[in-house]
Design a protein around this nucleic acid. Structure first.
Length: 395
DNA sequence: TCTGGGGTCCTAGGACCC
DNA sequence: TCTGGGGTCCTAGGACCC
């Protein structure tokens, strides 16, 4: 989806179309933004002057989405609000409204499912679609089906998207960025050399800042330069799995299927404080935040019908270093008090001298609530994981 | 100018078991 | 004195993605 959060906001506030605007900020920014909005009238009647501007904010936080006009000022996703305010102080800033984005996320995904049932969820604003067996999916290299999907989403939601069509997920993902916004790119196998090899390695889904840096140190800037290296050389320098993978992707090879169903592995809640807190001096405040996070995770688990048995905490110190601790208990739970209690034990094992910037709570090792795994006593759970020979000897 | 929140997957060492 | 070879689970950290 194109500038998804911002585009959803523009459906509510069409008067902001064409203006530089960013979505983001922590809770404090959200509160201030809401306070600045006048009451009464429909949302579309609110005058542009009434909307908060970036220059009015000094809060912590990053930009989740910037409209295309804002991007012209050099503003981008994940950029700190402070930096963005320097680049374009007059840009409008709106708080993140996740519930609203989720509504539109469900809507556009349903449109796709009605056309092409093999869809993989890749987060709130992105999916993979298997065109292989969709009627007309092969016509014009997939372009006509892509057009149909684009138009259907626009008709149903008012939102635009960009689609890449290719023989596999790796190339399709890169192709989807070739013609943004509202574009379609079809990339064939034979286009590898002309359209993929010139790209910077960083464009490969899975090569992040660290790997890119290391590649650069070897003088490898583009996918083509990566493809020119020996498979064995890559394995020597990047490890068996990563090296082999790099070799494959540089040659455009990817056999991952489109996965339509998946179970969550963990659920978590975390929050960055308005100001750094100290474990001793701000003990009461931290305790209240911690309890609240535990309750939120418990709610999430219960609402979605999961239980977990690994409970963990996460801290971010003022110097941005991160510490995590977790503990696996002998039963599954979705209970806020239990999570709070075990989480509290985890907190005792972590250094608390430095000021804290963030606190998080996580529950992992999930099972569906009420499933055999989740309800069985620990002993029975263990027996199912015993080697086949041992299990067979029981009979 | 300091840098969100919610995730997944991988690695590596140690405990423990057979 | 020298000390297996698997396997799983747990824990901590880190890279990466949307």
């Amino acid at each position: 989806m194109d500038a998804f959060y911002a585009s959803v906001e523009l459906l509510r506030y069409p008067q902001l179309k064409g203006l530089p605007m960013v979505i983001g900020g922590g809770r404090r920014t959200v509160d201030e933004a809401i306070r600045n909005l006048p009451e009464g009238g429909t949302l579309a009647d609110i005058p542009v002057e009434a909307f908060p501007r970036l220059k009015d904010y000094a809060g912590r936080g990053v930009i989740t989405t910037a409209t295309y006009p804002a991007r012209q000022f050099g503003i981008g996703s994940a950029m700190g609000l402070m930096k963005a305010a320097k680049l374009c102080p007059q840009a409008l800033i709106l708080p993140v409204d996740f519930d609203e984005y989720r509504r539109f996320s469900r809507a556009f995904k349903q449109v796709i499912l009605d056309i092409a049932p093999l869809m993989e969820d890749r987060g709130v604003d992105e999916v993979y679609i298997d065109f292989t067996n969709v009627p007309g999916g092969q016509r014009d290299g997939g372009r006509s089906l892509a057009r149909l999907i684009q138009k259907s989403i626009l008709d149903a939601t008012g939102l635009t998207c960009s689609i890449g069509v290719a023989p596999n997920k790796l190339i399709a993902k890169m192709a989807s960025e070739f013609d943004k916004p509202n574009g379609i790119s079809v990339v064939y196998e034979g286009d590898l050399e002309s359209r993929i090899w010139p790209l910077p390695c960083r464009k490969v889904n899975g090569i992040g800042p660290k790997a890119d840096e290391k590649l650069k140190r070897f003088g490898i800037e583009t996918v083509g330069q990566l493809a020119a290296r020996d498979r064995e050389w890559l394995i020597q320098n990047f490890g068996k799995a990563t090296g082999a993978w790099m070799h494959e992707v540089s040659w455009g090879r990817d056999d991952r299927p489109v996965v339509t169903e998946s179970e969550p592995v963990s659920m978590s809640r975390e929050t960055t404080f308005d100001r750094d807190l100290h474990a001793v001096r701000d003990r009461a405040e931290l305790g209240a935040i911690f309890t609240h996070l535990c309750e939120k995770v418990a709610e999430d688990l219960q609402r979605k019908g999961y239980v977990g048995k690994t409970i963990g905490i996460k801290l971010r110190y003022d110097d941005f270093r991160i510490a995590t601790r977790d503990q696996t208990i002998d039963r599954f739970t979705a209970d806020g008090k239990t999570i709070r209690q075990i989480g509290g034990q985890c907190l005792k094992r972590v250094p608390l001298e430095r000021p804290l910037r963030l606190l998080g709570v996580r529950v992992g090792a999930l099972a569906k609530a009420g499933s055999p795994e989740a309800t069985a006593p620990t002993g029975a759970v263990r027996s199912t994981t015993e080697p086949a020979s041992t299990t067979a000897s029981l009979f």
